[in-house]
Amino acid sequence: MKSATRHLLALAVTAIGASAGLSAQATTLKITVTNTQAEGGLSITPLYTAFHDGSFDAFDLGGMASPGIELIAETGMPGTVAAERRAVDPDSQPLVLASPSGPPPIQPGEIVTDTIDVTATGPLFFTFLSMLLPSNDHFIGNDNPLAYQIFDDSGNFTGDRTISVTGAQIYDAGTEANGLEGAAFIQGVDIADSPAGEGSIQQGIPLSNELVAPGVLLATGDTLDPALIDFTTDPAAFGLLTIQISEVAPVPLPASAPLLLGALGFLGWRHRRKAHR
């Protein structure tokens, strides 16, 4: 066998291997977040999500909020918590879902969708975090970093799923006192004000009655309906969001297919040329 032919065969075999590897490890996922609250209900800041190896434990109930959780709970900004995630799992992959129209927060009835390409060679888990609006330091998230396994031990997608976010996933970061002072998403209030909080991450802490006092307007100009925001009486029955994770149908030809087809086509051309000599 001539040297050129051997090289082309090797190239074809390599392309086949690369094709198999890509189809086994690269998965495009669609994430859809739906705010299931009625008009007058609660909003959230852009939803921060991450796929990680299980080592990213964002927070613990009863513990102190990290700088990243404090920032996301008081302002919705995810930059610091993203750095905390990368520090423990450099290969983890994030996606932030924000409203594509109007203000970035995801408001009652709004649906936001985006996609992410996830490469998995082993188990991967899903974490979500966001600030609850309006509030001083309430946030949502999953306390257990292993709660949602999205890829199995072999790196295979475990299947489409829907996560229901209820009052049981609403926390008070304990970093700021609850009231009108320093509250986010309220007209005329300076979010930079930060009255001292309770000290630790807690559950079952209601929003301040000051947020629904007469004359208090949300940043959108709307008012909060007191009948829609009680997430402490029956937390599991209080629906806030749904997060849907689904696989996008793969592209028929993997990235290595042109290389493979080109190599095989050239081999065929050489064979036909020799046959006609």
Score class of each variant (00 low, 15 high):
Q169S: 14
Q169V: 02
I170M: 11
I170L: 12
Y171F: 15
Y171W: 12
Y171E: 06
Y171Q: 06
D172S: 08
A173Q: 04
A173E: 07
G174Q: 09
G174T: 13
T175H: 08
E176P: 00
E176M: 15
E176Y: 02
E176G: 06
E176I: 07
A177F: 07
N178S: 15
N178D: 15
N178G: 14
G179S: 10
G179Q: 07
L180K: 12
L180G: 13
L180Y: 08
A183Y: 11
A183T: 09
A183E: 09
A184L: 09
A184F: 11
A184C: 10
A184V: 12
A184Q: 13
F185M: 12
F185G: 03
F185W: 15
I186Q: 10
I186E: 09
I186G: 08
Q187H: 01
Q187M: 10
G188F: 05
G188A: 10
G188E: 09
G188H: 06
D190W: 06
D190Q: 11
I191M: 09
I191D: 06
I191H: 06
I191T: 14
A192F: 13
A192L: 13
A192V: 09
D193S: 14
D193N: 14
D193P: 00
S194A: 15
S194R: 13
P195Y: 08
P195C: 07
P195D: 09
P195M: 07
P195L: 08
P195W: 08
A196R: 10
A196P: 15
A196H: 02
A196S: 14
A196V: 14
G197H: 04
G197T: 04
G199H: 11
S200E: 12
S200C: 00
S200K: 10
I201Y: 06
I201E: 06
I201K: 05
Q202I: 01
Q203Y: 02
Q203V: 14
G204S: 09
I205T: 08
P206Y: 12
P206E: 07
P206C: 10
P206V: 11
S208P: 01
S208W: 03
S208M: 02
N209K: 13
N209L: 13
N209V: 13
E210P: 00
E210H: 01
E210I: 01
V212I: 15
A213H: 04
P214S: 08
P214R: 02
P214W: 01
G215T: 05
G215D: 05
G215V: 06
G215Q: 04
G215F: 03
V216W: 07
V216K: 07
V216P: 06
V216T: 12
L217Q: 12
L217H: 07
L218A: 04
L218Q: 14
L218W: 01
A219P: 01
G221N: 02
D222N: 12
D222I: 00
D222E: 14
T223S: 12
P226W: 05
P226K: 04
A227C: 00
A227P: 00
L228S: 08
I229E: 04
I229G: 03
D230K: 07
F231G: 02
T232I: 13
T232K: 02
T233D: 11
T233E: 09
D234R: 08
P235K: 11
P235Q: 11
P235C: 07
A236G: 05
A237I: 02
A237K: 08
F238K: 10
G239A: 13
G239H: 12
G239Q: 15
L240T: 02
L241V: 12
L241N: 11
T242P: 03
